[in-house]
């Protein structure tokens, strides 16, 4: 590993302010982007593998291969959002700086995911339940995301109006990320379901969120329940 790469990776974790300052000044964008891409790929690949380890076998490989793509595709969609939002909030910056900032923030998240991966792997082995695995994985992702938000906030310029801009960009990023991850399911895989690379398209994340909300309130979608029942029967699965 070159000294430059190692230095940038260390700075991503330990000195987010210096990374944000470099990006704001347009300095070292390539070395930051190079280190960020590497961190993003490695961090999400390992974390994906750990998430897939809940089910084991081929799902580890599938989840490890898919999670970097969730990050990449989300970034490809949310960088233009950040760029446009900055212009709308009257603090325009070159597109390259918006790309580098989002990339660096995501890389910091990925590095924290990498750090959390061993603990999550252990927890998944100890707590075998599907729902516990979902909650733990989501919590880990949320915790790592906070590290990325810190860098993003620092890179958004003067304090006045920064919170609103951050809220807007984060909302867009979270929605995009959730939809992309939803499109590339399954991740943990229920014990009753088959291991596949990607499930056929089925609604959107927002629809699923609404459905889950109704289910939690005791209101069930009978059409969907019947379709699932038919699917289970076709696979010969117990109810």
């Amino acid at each position: 590993m070159s000294a430059d790469l190692s230095h940038t990776l260390t700075a991503l974790l330990r000195s987010p302010a210096s990374i944000a300052a470099s990006i704001t000044e347009g300095r070292d964008l390539r070395s930051i982007a190079r280190a960020s891409l590497l961190a993003l790929l490695v961090g999400t690949l390992v974390f994906g593998g750990v998430v897939g380890s809940h089910r084991g076998s081929l799902q580890m490989l599938y989840a490890a291969l898919k999670l970097p793509w969730v990050s990449m595709l989300t970034l490809a969609l949310s960088v233009p959002v950040l760029h446009g939002a900055r212009a709308a909030f009257e603090r325009p910056e070159p597109f390259a700086q918006s790309a580098a900032l989002m990339l660096a923030a995501s890389a910091r998240t990925a590095l924290v995911l990498l750090a959390l991966a061993p603990a999550l792997a252990l927890a998944l082995q100890v707590l075998r339940g599907y729902h516990a695995a979902v909650v733990l994985s989501a919590l880990s992702y949320g915790l790592a995301g906070l590290a990325g938000v810190g860098l993003l906030r620092r890179g958004l310029g003067p304090a006045e109006g920064r919170l609103a801009l951050l809220g807007f960009v984060l909302s867009a990023h979270l929605l995009t990320s959730a939809q992309v991850a939803w499109g590339l399911r399954p991740w943990l895989v229920r014990p009753s379901a088959d291991v596949v690379l990607v499930r056929p398209p089925e609604g959107t994340f927002a629809e699923e969120l609404a459905r889950a909300g109704f289910s939690a309130a005791g209101i069930y979608d009978s059409t969907r329940s019947k379709a699932r029942e038919a699917e289970r029967r076709a696979h010969g699965e117990p109810r």
């Binding site: 190079r34 970034l75 070159p94 700086q97």
Partner: peptide, 23 residues
């Protein structure tokens, strides 16, 4: 080699950065 790999995998992010001018 690094640029080619980065551009192939993540061109929407890498291309604007690679095409930008460093001060």
């Amino acid at each position: 080699a690094t640029t080619a790999a980065a551009a192939l995998l993540a061109w929407p992010l890498w291309a604007p950065i690679a095409l930008s001018r460093e001060p």
